[in-house]
Simulated assay, not measured.
Amino acid sequence: MSRPVVGIVGNFHLVNDQYPAQACGESNIEAVAQVAGALPLVLPARPDLAAVPDILDAVDGVVLPGGRPNVHPSFYGHDETEAHGTFDLNRDNLALPLIRACVEQGVPILGICRGFQEFNVAFGGTLHPEIRDLPGRMNHRMPPDGTLEEKFAHRHAVTLTPGGRFARILGADEVLVNTLHGQGITDPGARVVVEGHAPDGTPEAIHIDGARGFAMAVQWHPEWNAAADPVSRPLFEAFGAALRRGALRQTG
């Protein structure tokens, strides 16, 4: 049987500060290919060029990776502020309906960092632009200095719901993860089930209640060193298993 195809939603970039491009990190591509066992396909975050129905006709699953711009606050009823930073409305307008369509049609979908936040907004939740500014919260942002290995190193624990989906997949009720985000969940969406928290209470792992297939997201970056990391590997393996189950149903 051929490998399932996973669409990885891209991000807008300016190459050499002038040439527009759509791209995603190679670590996302490697995790999908090497650990989930799928064929990675980078999807342009351009809803005018890649409509949701066309995407779902072409792929067996979707990954929503991290990205520097924040989800625009108008999508969850908040006003834009300087703290929100930059935006990518094309990605917002593609990702949010794509998440809902995947959930309703049973297409496996995995959200990472910004993708985690998009999951929440897609189902009516809200975000805070700077989690570290809330009382009692830690700084979750990427360290400004150091090598990539140092930036993506484990920095805090995540406590998981005992017996929950993440605890079953990862084989533990507490795991160590990296952290490279400023924005985070404040109010979970109506179908968003929070299964993991950082020590300061920040939501870190969610799934969508009533989803017909795999619909899980994490605030950290499991794609980094996914083949060797004891937390990342089982998460991407579970995603890969869901892809193959879906492919078998379609051919059965």
Rank of each mutant, 00 (worst) to 15 (best):
Q22H: 09
S74I: 12
R3M: 14
F166E: 04
F236Q: 08
L98C: 05
Q117L: 07
W224V: 14
V62Y: 02
L64D: 03
F116S: 01
R141T: 15
A172I: 07
H72T: 01
V158D: 03
H13F: 15
A122W: 00
L89C: 02
A122C: 10
T159E: 15
V193Y: 03
L94C: 06
D54H: 06
R137V: 08
F87D: 03
A198Y: 09
N178D: 08
L98I: 01
E223K: 00
P65L: 02
G136L: 07
A226F: 09
H72I: 02
R249M: 10
L89E: 00
M216T: 01
A211M: 10
E195K: 05
R191I: 10
I55P: 04
V175S: 07
V218P: 11
E30K: 04
G124L: 09
D145E: 13
A228G: 09
V62P: 00
F116E: 01
N225T: 01
S74V: 09
G210M: 06
D79Q: 13
R100T: 11
G189N: 08
G210L: 04
E118I: 05
H128V: 14
G252Y: 00
G115P: 02
L176N: 08
T159K: 14
G67P: 02
P47D: 00
L127C: 02
D54E: 15
A38D: 13
I185R: 06
G252C: 13
Y19H: 12
I99Q: 04
D54A: 15
P73R: 11
D229I: 05
D133I: 00
T159Y: 03
Q250E: 13
P65A: 06
T147K: 06
E237M: 12
M142N: 04
G61V: 04
P44F: 01
G25L: 14
P203C: 12
D229W: 08
Q18N: 11
D54V: 13
